[in-house]
């Protein structure tokens, strides 16, 4: 249908476009930002076959509760979401019951405190942003619910931040009051003090609590918190894509057969 010369022009042009875009893309990546770019890690959830590492996520929940929840909220999650991680009803109830929520008004019109139940959302560490800033030197600890999706290389970035603190800034870097040196954070200075310590927590499953291990686990937890639907999504995705490929094949055959009638 199309003469060869034409096809060649077209293919060459497409190749040039693709090539230029690629070159352009890499140039842009090198030029971007003043923070060090995080190393990419081999996460269990990576790739089209990726799955959550449930054991790591469960440990990550423990890291979050013990080390982060005093500052970082998780406002989009409810305790009932923990069923997805394999906790049973009693375990979830127990986790929730550690927190107090305000409920009411009761029959006299008064608000009252009660222990949280599975249907409650994760209790916020601070009543509002100003309160959070007031306790953190003016800095705001961001909410964790979708943090892993809010950075270009989300989980790698979180892991890099958590493992990237340096006790001493390099020559010539002047740290502002209350700031900590972390080359992976924009500007190299972060208002959060290193939150993880060697054996800072004792894992209930006996895993050795190195800083790397805790960072790894809490990052897995945050990735799950950001996209709890991921496993369903990929599983359904395979079925849909395979179905569509077969359908495309059949439709191609039907098209060939129909057009064969022309001559």
């Amino acid at each position: 249908m199309m003469d060869i010369g034409n096809k060649i022009t077209r293919v060459t042009a497409t190749a040039i476009v693709a090539g230029l875009t690629l070159i352009a893309g890499t140039a842009g990546a090198i030029a971007a930002g003043d923070a060090e770019s995080p190393e990419s890690q081999n996460w269990a959830f990576n790739g089209v076959f990726g799955k959550f590492d449930k054991a790591s996520i469960q440990r990550g929940l423990q890291v979050y509760i013990e080390n982060c929840s005093a500052c970082h909220s998780l406002e989009q999650l409810a305790y009932r979401n923990l069923f997805d991680l394999g906790f049973n009803i009693d375990e979830v109830k127990e986790i929730a019951a550690q927190y107090e929520v305000t409920d009411g008004p009761d029959e006299f019109g008064d608000m009252f405190e009660r222990p949280a139940i599975p249907s409650d959302r994760f209790v916020l560490p601070f009543p509002n942003e100003n309160a959070a800033r007031a306790s953190n030197n003016g800095a705001f600890p961001p909410d964790f619910s979708v943090l892993a999706k809010a950075h270009p290389s989300g989980p790698d970035f979180i892991y890099a931040i958590l493992t990237g603190f340096k006790d001493e800034p390099p020559e010539g870097v002047e740290l502002a009051e209350g700031m900590n040196y972390n080359p992976f954070f924009a500007g190299g200075q972060i208002a959060m003090a290193p939150p993880l310590f060697e054996d800072g927590i004792e894992y209930t499953d006996g895993t050795a609590a190195t800083v790397q291990q805790q960072a790894w686990d809490v990052t897995n937890f945050l990735q799950w918190a950001a996209e709890p639907e991921m496993e369903d999504r990929k599983r359904i995705g395979w079925k849909v894509v395979l179905f569509l490929l077969v359908l495309s094949g059949l439709l191609y055959a039907a098209k060939r057969q129909t057009w064969a009638r022309l001559h």
Partner: peptide, 14 residues
């Protein structure tokens, strides 16, 4: 269209 939807689905799901 089927090819197009396949590409679309690949992005939506993966």
């Amino acid at each position: 269209l089927a090819i197009w939807v396949t590409l679309f689905a690949a992005v939506v799901f993966f």
